[in-house]
């Protein structure tokens, strides 16, 4: 139901590395789950609206009033790599 190439494509979208052996087992396991899920394909749902949320409220906007920020050392405290007051990463363009 889901083949090797699709697994690799989805893994790329999800930024997950899969080893060679993992691609096969992932394809197998996902196919198994998708087989079960496919049952909802049999229902007739054409005129049914989608529910994204059971909470029926709207608005809930926040007044535009400043709240205290985190001290920088706290913001950076848990980062694996820090430089120049910021979070260090390999350059995206590199």
């Amino acid at each position: 139901m889901i083949d090797r190439d699709e697994v690799l494509h989805v893994a790329r979208l999800a930024r997950l590395k899969l080893d060679d052996g993992e691609v096969e087992s992932m394809a197998r396991e996902l196919s198994g789950v998708l087989d079960h899920i496919a049952k909802i394909g049999e229902l007739s749902l054409d005129d049914v609206p989608p529910t994204s949320h059971v909470v029926e409220v709207v608005g809930r906007l926040r007044p535009d009033e400043p709240r205290p920020c985190l001290p920088r050392e706290v913001a950076l405290e848990q980062a694996p790599s820090v430089s120049d007051g910021g979070f260090l990463v390999p350059s995206p363009q590199a």
């Binding site: 913001a75 120049d84 260090l88 390999p90 350059s91």
Partner: peptide, 21 residues
């Protein structure tokens, strides 16, 4: 904002950037 900082000893191999939120 991403600020390019060039080669960094702490990033293996290549150029690095610093993120400012």
């Amino acid at each position: 904002k991403l600020v390019h900082v060039g080669a960094s000893g702490r990033i293996h191999g290549s150029d690095a950037s610093v993120v400012d939120f």
